[in-house]
Every structure is written in structure tokens, then in C-alpha cells.
Nucleic acid binder design. Structure first.
Lengths: 188, 188
DNA sequence: TGTTAATTCGAGGCAGCCTCAGTATAGTTT
DNA sequence: AAACTATACTGAGGCTGCCTCGAATTAACA
């Protein structure tokens, strides 16, 4: 058996500082901000950053962890307590999540198919929730019969990208319009 | 007055080769492909590339010139000869244009507001055509009364980004759904 | 206090960005 | 066809960022 030692105090401190500074840097300059600058801001050598986060995506994944839990909780709640606007609520929440940092939307969109991505699992989970929510809406007749989970993925991804490159207003508008299109009774 | 001299033969040759190789490189690796590799492929020193195209965006702009003309011609034709599906045709064509290279959609979306971008003028022209087309559709009653040119920009941008990060199918599907939403008679 | 495994450090190799002083040459003039 | 010169080309060099790895440090435990 492997007796696990308590992690060193400096390691935990550096881990937290790196996360905090990465969050700040990514908010300001997007997800492609220089990792060396993140390490500098955290007062830590570059090697230490790589020790904790071997990959930029691993860092992003760690940054998203808490946020993810909140999102998944919302999804579970929406699934547990049916409501007519559940799908719309979900799409808006997922979009906001994917638009947390500039560049994130693309990373998440790519992460869905890329099994090597540290974000793959959480992307799948998001897709799964969306899928279940449309399925229910389809049964209710709230959305057109050919609506699929992919439609939700596409809409979320697209809206998040819009949020980043155009504005929050345009992103929200796209959601409104596309959901209206999904509510169409007969396929166009 | 400044008399414009004919450019030197070697300059024109290099210009063309650079364009050709940039096109190939960007098709393969997206718009962020290394410019040094483009110069290498063209058999030219890096300084020569910068001599012709001071900016990556300038290079992209040059690459898009012909393509742009074709697109604008289509726009003018659609405006000249009213047809029920003119708007849909335009959105699909503009999306295909914006998805020519991976990374282009984002560049164009940003270029609309950024007056320093070499792509600004052509982005505006695209936006203008879209605007006129929705205006007409609005008058016809083919789209909801609150539809605007921004809706078209948003949809085009979003679909192109989807084309890049998800698939052509999802991009097309978003267009279908959003246009259906725009066709909704009363605002949701 | 000593031991040891975990952690940190940062120099170094590599690639890409972009500039600029020096060099080459196409096109012109005599 | 030689000389001239504006135009264009060259590529080394300074900079930043990516990532790795061997050496140095240090927190945890006995």
C-alpha cells in the first residue's frame, strides 16, 4: 500500500497563486496569454508552473473546475425539475461559461472531439446535459422533432464565440433567434 | 504629383509566389501559420515578405481580394434581382467566404469594428450588403420586424466559426435554424 | 537534527516575430 | 554596353515565448 504524504505547503501555495494569477491574466488578455508572464506574476519560476500544469489546457481545466461544478449542478436541477424555459436557461448558462475567457469557446469546441484534451470530459458532460434537455423538449413538442443535442452544442459554441468577437448583445440575440427557430413546429 | 512607376519584375514575381504559398500554408495550417515558413516555401527571405506585406492582416487582405470581388458581385446581383431566398443565399455565401481559412472568421469579426484593420473596408461592405438584404426582407414581411443587419453579421460570424471548430454541417444547420427564427412573424 | 523525497529554480535550446544596414539588380540613361 | 540609381532583396540579430532537465533547495517526518 502507498501511504500518501501530505502535500508540501509551498507547493499548495504556489498552486493557488498560479491559479489566481492565471485567472487574472486570462481575463485580461485571453487564454493565450504568455505562461511566462503568469509565472512572473505569481512570483514563481517557469518550471514551477509546468510542474503544476504540464499543459496550457491543464491550467485552463483547473481554472474551470469550480465553475464547472456550478454549471453541472444547474444542469442537474433543470433536469430534475421540468420547466418550460429549461432549455433556454441552460443554453444561456452554458454560453456564459464558455465565454469566461477569450479563446475559451474555441478550446471547448475543439475539446469535444479531442479525447486527449484535458477539457474533453467536461465538454462531454455539458453536451450530455444539453442532449437530455432537448430530448425532453422534443417529447413535449416544445421544439421541432428534428432538434438534436448537436444543435445545442452548435448554438452554445457559436454564441460564446460571438460574445468574444462581437458583443454579449449579439450573442444573446443569436440565442433568442435560434431558439425561436428550434421552436418552429415543422422543419423548414 | 507622384508618377507611379511600374514595379520591378522580380518584385512582382515574389509577390505572386508569396501569395500562392501563403494561400497553401493558410489552407493547411490556418491563418496563424508561421510567416517565416511562408517565406521559406516561396524561396524568399523573410524581409522580402515583410516588404510586400507589412502585416499578417495585409497578407490576408491581399489573399482575399479576388474572392471578395466575387462575393460582392453576388451581393449586388441579389440586390438587383429580388428573390425570396436572397437573404439565405447571401448568408451562406458570406459564411463560406469567412470560413476560407481557419482563423479567418475571428479576424473578420474583429475587423468590422477595428478601423486600423486592413480588412475593415471589406468587412463593412459585407455588412452593408447584409443590411440592405434584411431591410428588403423586413419590408416584404419575409422576416420579423425587429430583424437587423447586426443579426446577419452575427449569424455569419457565428456560422463561420462553427465551420472551423465543429463542422460544415453544424454551421449550415445553425443558419437554417436562425433563419427560421428570423422568419418568425412576431418577436418572441 | 538528519534524512529524503518532493518541489523549485532558471539556464538553455528552439522557433517565430519584426527591423534594418548592407548588398544586389532591374530598368533607365547616356 | 557601361554607368547609374531607385527599387527590391537579404539575413543576422534582438526580442519574446515555449518547454525541458539537471542541479539546488526545502518541507515533512522520524
Amino acid at each position: 500500500m502507498t501511504t500518501t504524504r501530505r502535500p508540501r505547503a509551498d507547493a499548495r501555495r504556489n498552486y493557488e497563486r498560479l491559479l489566481a494569477e492565471a485567472d487574472a491574466a486570462f481575463r485580461e488578455g485571453g487564454i493565450e496569454s504568455s505562461l511566462e508572464s503568469v509565472a512572473r506574476r505569481a512570483g514563481v519560476a517557469i518550471g514551477t508552473l509546468y510542474g503544476h500544469f504540464p499543459t496550457r489546457r491543464a491550467l485552463v481545466g483547473a481554472l474551470l473546475r469550480e465553475r464547472n461544478e456550478g454549471l453541472f449542478d444547474l444542469g442537474d436541477r433543470l433536469l430534475a425539475h421540468p420547466a418550460p424555459d429549461a432549455l433556454a436557461t441552460w443554453v444561456r448558462a452554458a454560453t456564459a461559461h464558455a465565454a469566461a475567457y477569450s479563446g475559451l469557446a474555441a478550446l471547448l469546441a475543439d475539446g469535444l472531439d479531442d479525447e486527449t484534451s484535458e477539457l474533453h470530459a467536461s465538454c462531454r458532460r455539458m453536451a450530455d446535459i444539453g442532449e437530455r434537455l432537448v430530448a425532453r423538449a422534443r417529447e413535449t413538442g416544445a421544439v421541432r422533432p428534428d432538434a438534436t443535442g448537436d444543435d445545442i452544442i452548435a448554438l452554445t459554441t457559436a454564441a460564446a464565440s460571438l460574445h468574444e468577437h462581437r458583443s454579449a448583445a449579439e450573442a444573446d440575440r443569436l440565442i433568442t433567434l435560434t431558439l425561436a427557430g428550434l421552436a418552429t413546429t415543422r422543419p423548414a
